[in-house]
Simulated scan of single mutants.
Amino acid sequence: MSAPPRVDSAGSKLQQKQPVKKHLSDNAKSLTFTAKRMPLSPSILRRNGVSMNASYSSEASSSCESSPLSIASSSSGKRALRRSGSNSLRGNLTEERGDCFSDGRRRCAWITPKSDQCYIAFHDEEWGVPVHDDKKLFELLSLSGALAELSWKDILSKRQSFREVFMDFDPAAISELTNKKITSPDSLLSEQKLRSILENANQVRKIIVEFGSFDKYIWNFVNHKPTQSRSRYQRQVPAKTSKAELISKDLVRRGFRSVSPTVIYSFMQTAGLTNDHLTSCFRHHECMSKDEAVS
């Protein structure tokens, strides 16, 4: 005998509720279909994530205006972004472009908005600008030699004192001084460095007699035209080059002191014999324009 049909509390047959079951089944299918599509969303998020990161990036630009970075548009760039993380990308971009200042310009990575104003002015107005005045060249050579004991920030803050002690870096005037007359009241440099500047002034005078000017002698090493670097990142800027080593050897041969290759390369950067502003720095193109205007 077959079992009687089940009924609910109202006596209605449960079989009459089959459409409800079918409706639930349709909902279940809908939920199942939605669940199957859910795994697609992470890829969409990843694509959106790359796009968001790209909005923070830009090609090397001297302004703070940002544009999409080419790395974000390539599949290899996306994989690299996922591997290294967005923080690493932002770090590289900061090193490449430098900080964005209130004036809307980008500068080299060694200058920040928190830097001293004299340091920022040094970067904006002097560093990388071709110098052809003998006194100014000797001043920058002497200050570069002082980097063994002081930082550029300290040197710039005491620059007026340096000029007073060393008579505006006039090689002829300095060469007539003695060690007793060159004593520095505020201990600008060690006695050894002070003597080096005195000796170097004598050698500069000899070079002027031989070549007509210190300018002609020193610029001859770069064929009287600044070397234009194309560094995107600060880590790509060298501490010395083969050219700096060549100049250093010749200066040492002539009796100069405190003129190591690193000192000479710092001098070359400061005096504009080489333009080492990062390509994203607004001064990179300005220094190139100054060079073209002089030549």
Rank of each mutant, 00 (worst) to 15 (best):
F169P: 04
A172N: 11
D186M: 00
S151G: 03
G11E: 07
I264Q: 05
S295R: 15
Q203Y: 07
S43L: 14
D124C: 05
S9V: 11
S9H: 07
S66R: 15
V237G: 02
R230Y: 11
Q234T: 06
P68R: 13
Y265M: 11
S115I: 02
Q117W: 08
S70R: 13
K240V: 10
A146H: 08
M167D: 13
L81E: 07
R83T: 09
F282C: 00
L40I: 11
G91K: 12
E139A: 04
K29V: 06
L189K: 04
L246A: 14
T32H: 14
Q192A: 07
F169K: 04
E191I: 07
H132E: 12
R106F: 01
N202G: 01
F256K: 02
K136I: 06
N202Q: 10
V204K: 01
D124M: 06
Q117T: 10
S213G: 01
K17A: 04
R37A: 07
K17R: 12
S289A: 12
E176K: 10
E149A: 10
G91D: 09
V165G: 00
V129K: 11
S242V: 15
K36M: 09
S70E: 13
F162K: 00
E176A: 05
R253D: 05
Q16I: 05
K78Q: 14
S280Q: 03
L24M: 14
Q234A: 05
E149R: 04
E164A: 02
Q236P: 03
F33K: 15
S12F: 15
S161F: 02
K29M: 13
F267E: 00
Q18N: 06
E210H: 08
A109F: 08
S57W: 12
S266R: 08
I247M: 13
F166P: 04
S74Y: 03
I197N: 06
A244F: 11
R46C: 04
S63F: 15
S51G: 01
H224N: 14
S115C: 00
T112R: 05
S142M: 08
R47V: 07
L31C: 08
N53P: 00
A72D: 12
P4W: 10
A173N: 03
V50R: 09
L150E: 00
F101R: 07
S248V: 03
P130N: 05
A80W: 08
Q192E: 09
M288G: 06
E125F: 05
K216I: 13
H132P: 03
S280A: 12
D99F: 11
T34I: 14
E149M: 10
H284R: 03
A121M: 09
D124R: 07
S12N: 14
E286A: 07
K225T: 04
K180N: 04
A201W: 09
T227F: 08
K153S: 14
S2A: 07
R232T: 01
K135Y: 13
Y233L: 14
L40E: 15
T241H: 15
G212D: 06
V259W: 07
S67L: 09
N87P: 04
D103I: 01
W219N: 01
S187V: 09
S175H: 01
